[in-house]
Computed example of a mutant assay.
Amino acid sequence: MNGLNTAAVYLLQTIGSLYLLIVLLRFILQLVRADFYNPLCQFIVRATQPLLKPLRKIIPGFGGLDIASLVLAILLQLLLMTLTLLLTYGVMGNPLQLLIWSVIGITALFMKVFFFAMIISVILSWVAQGSHNPGVLLVNQICEPMLMPIRRFLPSMGGLDISPIFAFIGIKLIDMLVIQNLMIGTGMPDVLRLLI
């Protein structure tokens, strides 16, 4: 792979992954029932609307979930992986295998969003407790549905919330035991693992 291809892969992965994250956040925000009047939510809606609007005509929502945004995320991941393979090895790859790798990639990104949202939430609880910043509110809305069931089973610790520790452990175990084994089991190339 020459320098031009390396630069193209880098740009593709960087810009494509950022937009993919925004599309997946649109799905997650509906999943956690976030406040869509939040300015950050409004940005995400505007950024994803051009691709989602035509897709929604074909793919309806189901049970209050925005299935079109999830399908768009998988299609974007599929496109990113296909272009990465083309630029790196000059081959397109098996479409079914690429679809499986795309679903694995979206699942891994989904887990990473919650992992990093919890890290941000823990840090903000130390430095910006009670803040009404739109970013702080959004991070808390993303984390709360995952932490609430854990808090039900934990005894009261006198104001100390250790539920994020158990959530971190759960996410890491899912990553180690499920996602990493699926990557290895399906033969995902190293160049595609960088996308995840």
Rank of each mutant, 00 (worst) to 15 (best):
I15L: 15
Q97H: 02
F116P: 01
G158I: 01
M157T: 12
L96Q: 06
L51T: 05
V113P: 06
L20H: 10
L65V: 00
G3S: 14
G61F: 06
L138Q: 11
T14F: 13
L177W: 14
Q42T: 03
G130L: 15
I28V: 14
M176H: 12
I165D: 09
L79K: 04
G135C: 10
D35T: 10
I184W: 03
I28H: 08
R151L: 03
I150G: 05
V103C: 10
G159A: 03
W101A: 01
L80K: 10
I106N: 06
P134W: 02
I169M: 14
S69R: 12
I174C: 11
A167T: 01
V91P: 01
L12G: 02
L12V: 03
G135W: 10
K112G: 06
G105E: 03
S17Q: 15
L21M: 09
E144K: 07
L75R: 10
L51P: 00
L173P: 01
I74N: 09
P60F: 14
V9S: 02
K172A: 13
W126A: 14
G63I: 00
L75C: 04
A68S: 11
A8T: 03
S121Q: 11
S131R: 06
L147D: 02
M157C: 08
A108R: 12
Q13S: 13
G93H: 09
L29V: 04
S156D: 14
N94L: 04
A68G: 11
L182P: 02
P155S: 13
I196M: 15
R26S: 06
L195I: 15
G185I: 03
T14V: 07
I123E: 05
I22P: 06
L124P: 01
L177R: 12
S69P: 02
R56M: 05
L98Y: 02
F110I: 00
V113F: 12
R56K: 07
Q42I: 08
D190E: 05
L86C: 07
M176S: 11
A34D: 07
M176K: 14
V178Y: 13
L194W: 09
P60N: 14
V71K: 10
L40M: 09
L154D: 12
A167E: 00
K53V: 10
V103M: 15
L87K: 02
V139N: 10
Y37G: 05
N5H: 14
K172Y: 06
L65H: 03
S125H: 13
T14N: 13
L192A: 06
F168T: 01
G187F: 05
